[in-house]
C-alpha cells in the first residue's frame, strides 16, 4: 500500500512520518511514536479509552485516521504533566480522590475531563457525568472519577482567581 507523509504536532512537538492512509491515529500514536499511554478498549468509538485532544476537541483516536490529523495539534496523556514532571491538577485529583483503579480508562478520562473543564470550568455533578458519558470505566463506578473532576475544577478556578487578582 502506498504511503502518505503526515505531519502533526503531538504534545507540542512536531512529528513527521510516512504512513499508510488506513493507519488509525491511535496506532500512529502508540506504535509510530511509542506513546502507549493512549489505550484501545473497543475499536468502535464506544469506550473512550483512546480519547485524545485534536485541535481543541476530544476525539476517539481509534476511529480517526492518522492522515486526518494532518497539520493538527494532538494532545495525549503524555503531554499532561509539566515539562519538569509536575502533575496536572487533574492527574493529582484523580490520585487524591481514587478516581482510577486498573488505569486503562484513565488517560482517556483525564484527556476528556481536561477538555470538558475548558468548555465548562464550573460544571455541576450532572454536567460532569454527561460530559464523560463517552468514556467507560469498569472499575470505579464513576463516583470517584466525578469527585476528582469536580475537585480539579474547583482548584483550577481558584488558581485562575489568584492569577486574575495578581
Amino acid at each position: 500500500m502506498s504511503k502518505i507523509a503526515v505531519t502533526m504536532t503531538v504534545n507540542g512537538r512536531q512529528v513527521e512520518r510516512l504512513v499508510e492512509p488506513r493507519l488509525l491515529l491511535v496506532h500512529f500514536l502508540r506504535e509510530e511514536l511509542g506513546l502507549t499511554g493512549t489505550h484501545i478498549g473497543c475499536e468502535t468509538s464506544h469506550c473512550g479509552a483512546c480519547t485524545v485532544d485534536l485541535d481543541g476537541v476530544s476525539v476517539k483516536s481509534c476511529t480517526v485516521l492518522a492522515v486526518q490529523a494532518q497539520g493538527k495539534e494532538v494532545r495525549t496523556i503524555e503531554g499532561m504533566a509539566a515539562p519538569d514532571g509536575t502533575l496536572h491538577v487533574l492527574q493529582e485529583m484523580f490520585r487524591e480522590h481514587h478516581g482510577l483503579q486498573c488505569g486503562w480508562c484513565t488517560p482517556g478520562m483525564i484527556l476528556r475531563a481536561w477538555r470538558l473543564l475548558q468548555e465548562n470550568p464550573d460544571p455541576s455533578e450532572e454536567e460532569v457525568r454527561f460530559g464523560i458519558a463517552g468514556n467507560l470505566c469498569r472499575c470505579t463506578g464513576y463516583q470517584k472519577i466525578v469527585e476528582a473532576i469536580l475537585a480539579a475544577a474547583a482548584k483550577l478556578r481558584a488558581a485562575r482567581t489568584v492569577e486574575a487578582a495578581a
Binding site: T76, E78, Q91, G103
Partner: peptide
C-alpha cells in the same frame, strides 16, 4: 493514596 496511580495517571 495509591502507589500505582503515579504511573497510571501519566499513561
Amino acid at each position: 493514596k495509591r502507589v500505582e496511580d503515579i504511573r497510571f495517571v501519566q499513561g
